[in-house]
Structures are given as C-alpha cells and as structure tokens.
C-alpha cells in the first residue's frame, strides 16, 4: 500500500496538487487573515482567466505544438468583448466565432504545410495584437453587464473562482481524458502515425484541437473583462508565459500527448497564488518575475528527482 502511494507515478501525479498545498500553507502561515472566504476570493480572482488560457495552451501542447500567441489572442478577445460584444451583441458573437475559426484555420495550415507551430503562432501574435489595437486603440471599453454578473457571483461557503476552476478542470477532464475521441486526440500527440494508420484524419484532429484552444482563449478573454470591466490590447500579454508554465507545472509534457487538465488548472492556481505569496513575503517588485522563475525551477527539479526514480 505504502509502496503504491510512494510510487514515482503516484508522486508525479500528486506533485501539482502538492505544490499548490505547500504554497497555500506558506501563505496562511505568513498571513493567517488570507485564510478566509474574502481572502481566497481576492487572491484567486484572476485564476479563472489564467486557468482558461492554460487549458487553451494544453490543447495545443497535447498535439506536440506550442502556442506563443495565446496572450495577445486573449487580449484581442477581451478587446472584442469590451467593444463590439457590448455595443452590438450579434456582431460581437460573430467576431468571436471568427476568432475560433481563425484558430482552426491555423491548425489546418500548420498541418497542411507541416509548419513549426512556434514560428506560425509567433507571427500570429503580431496579427492578434494588431487587430486588437485597431479595435481598441486606447485602453477602455465596457464589459457587457452579464459577463460582469457571472464573474461577480457570490457563492455560499466556497469562493466563486475555486468552484469555476473545479468545473473547468472536470469538464475538460471528462471530454479529453475519458471520452473515446479524447483518447484519439491525445493519441495524435503520442503517435500521430499510428492514429493516421487507424483511419483518423490528422488534419481534423489538429483543427479540432486548435479550435478548442481558440474557444478557451475566447472564454479567457471574456472572463478577464468580467473582472476588469474594461480592456486593453496588451491586457493579457503575459498569459503566453503563464499558460505554458501552468501546463508544465500541472504535469504536462511537451511531447507525447501527455497532459492533464486537472493538473493544468492546479498549475494555473499555483501561478496565480505566487503573486500574492511574494507580496505577503514583502519581496521587492523587482524580484517578482525572478521568484516566479525560481518556483518554476523548484517544481521542475522535484519532478526531475521523481523521474530519476522512475528510471
């Protein structure tokens, strides 16, 4: 029994949750007042958009690609949400659907020409940013009232961000990890040739995964303006790094279709809390980025240790 609990596989699966618990414990130790409904709500406010962007990145990483444009893309959808969607909902919805379609088309292009996703998405990050700057040249706009209402929901006992994060993790887990087609989708990351030989269309798989990433990018942008109530083309520039780090903290691998939606959401929560932790530690803002890097390195070092035991 004990051997089973301490097996490398179990340890590895527990690492994302364990790092979150350790971080939470440290925060509560330094600042006991954070251990309240209000405190958690405040600290985890931005967990929802970050978790959604992390899930978007996870879909792309699951098929061995990397999306370096998700941050600007979230910025674009936030800009659309705070302008078009508020002023003329029909146009706004059409524009957001267009964004998802553009992501699916990118997937098709990458597959058709066998292009490196890093370069394509790096180029597209300029395109998203450019469109966002045209839609919203200066920070501003207003989020539609219903989005603000959803993001401002006050639930009894458990803060909304925690419930929302749990729902996101479970829904994606069921679809990607437990459904038959989900296994095929991940299989395309593990052994694309085998999936292709089995008669599945790799083109369709890549388009589905990119469309899923685009959809979650849209959701991330909308949930973000629900919190900030205004937008800016650059509002989510750091989300590209957050989302990659979140997937990796959550136990995902860059190749082989080895990802975990629950882990990714936990990784996003950990990243969100890192900011609060550093503020409580009274670390100079100069070192905040560095401390985030250090935490990333520590978690990866732990994983390397476990892997070594895996042999």
């Amino acid at each position: 029994m004990l051997a089973q609990v301490l097996s490398p596989r179990a340890l590895r699966a527990a690492l994302p949750a364990a790092s979150l618990v350790v971080l939470l414990a440290a925060i509560f130790y330094i600042q006991p007042r954070a251990m309240s409904y209000f405190g958690l709500n405040l600290m985890l406010q931005y967990a929802v958009p970050i978790a959604l962007a992390t899930i978007a990145q996870m879909f792309v990483i699951a098929i061995n690609d990397l999306d370096l444009s998700i941050g600007p893309f979230v910025g674009l959808t936030a800009s659309i949400g705070a302008t078009l969607l508020a002023s003329s909902p029909v146009l706004g919805v059409l524009a957001l659907i267009g964004c998802v379609a553009a992501y699916a088309a990118l997937g098709a292009l990458i597959h058709w020409r066998n292009l490196p996703s890093i370069v394509v998405t790096l180029g597209m990050s300029f395109v998203w940013l450019g469109v966002a700057v045209i839609i919203l040249p200066t920070p501003g706009g207003t989020a539609p009232g219903w989005i603000k209402a959803v993001m401002g929901v006050k639930l009894p006992y458990v803060p909304f961000p925690i419930v929302a994060a749990a729902i996101i993790a479970l829904v994606v887990h069921v679809v990607l990890m437990r459904s038959a087609y989900g296994a095929v989708l991940r299989g395309a990351g593990g052994n694309a040739r085998a999936i292709g030989r089995a008669g599945w269309s790799l083109l369709k798989i890549r388009m589905v995964m990119y469309a899923a990433a685009g959809t979650f990018g849209v959701l991330s942008g909308l949930s973000l303006i629900g919190l900030t109530s205004a937008a800016d083309a650059h509002i989510a520039d750091r989300y590209t790094l957050y989302s990659i780090a979140g997937v990796i903290l959550g136990g995902g691998e860059f190749v082989g279709g080895r990802v975990s939606p629950i882990g990714a959401v936990l990784g996003a929560l950990t990243l969100t809390l890192t900011g609060s932790f550093l503020i409580f530690l009274k670390i100079s803002p100069d070192w905040q980025i560095g401390a985030q890097g250090a935490i990333l390195i520590i978690v990866l070092a732990l994983r390397a240790l476990i892997k070594r035991r895996e042999g």
Binding site: G123, V127, W128, G130, A132, I134
Partner: peptide, 11 residues
C-alpha cells in the same frame, strides 16, 4: 495596428 498585422502575416 496595420503594421503589426502585416509584419505577422508576412512572417
């Protein structure tokens, strides 16, 4: 905005 879009599209 157009400059950004064109740079990206050309890459």
């Amino acid at each position: 905005g157009v400059r950004l879009i064109m740079t990206g599209l050309i890459i």
